[in-house]
Amino acid sequence: MTMKVLVPVKRVVDYNVKVRVAADGSGVETQGVKMSMNPFDEIAVEEAVRLREKGAAKEVVVVTVGAQAAQDVLRTAMAMGADRAILVRTDDTLEPRAVANVLKAIATREEAGLICMGKQAIDDDMNATGQILAAKLGWPQGTFASAVTVADGRIEVAREIDGGTEVVSLTLPAVVTADLRLNEPRYASLPNIMKARKKPLETVEIDSLGVDTASRLTVVSVAEPAERKEGVKVNSAAELVEKLKTEAKVI
């Protein structure tokens, strides 16, 4: 098998951090908070590495789009087993559409046979980059994957859908986006972190790719959600059911 797997990853505010809306409403405070690899992307890295370990792929290349500091998540991905990394350097925050344009250029250059990525980033919660990228490449997509099998030039993807699982069979190349149940990512062990420091990391200036990275959305404001108001006490289960039916209209 000579397939190359491209795994796009994103550096995000660590999932343990309680985010705080900036006092001026311009966004979320990200200064000085712990940053990590997006958890869904860790799952994607793990899956790609497993595909290589099974012999279904020959190389795992991770890529991120971001500032110089974003190379720490590339090192983590390489400590988990990715073979090499590409940092597409920019100081701007890009939207999924723009990121997809960048990734399309990288996927084309790398002649990737499979793109495996997280279904969404836990910062902007967009859940869109994989789908946009697949559309732009003209590749099929297997989103929200809970299992994948590569065989005979195709990839079979079990997808998490509302109320169950759907299986689709895609021609390769394809884009797969990882959901939580796909696997449990391994630890980046200390020996592997040390070895990852010596793996190749290429930096590509975003302008050199010549792709459209303009924003189509303007952030007008960012606010904290309203706190929940204390509700009412009801006296009986019957009254509760009545209110859920007529007032809340939820059952």
Binding site: E184, P185, R186, Y187, S189, L190, P191
Partner: peptide
Amino acid sequence: GIERNGEHGPNFTPGM
């Protein structure tokens, strides 16, 4: 990657 019961889990990674 040691489990609650002290056994090695699937992601057990020994210290170095």
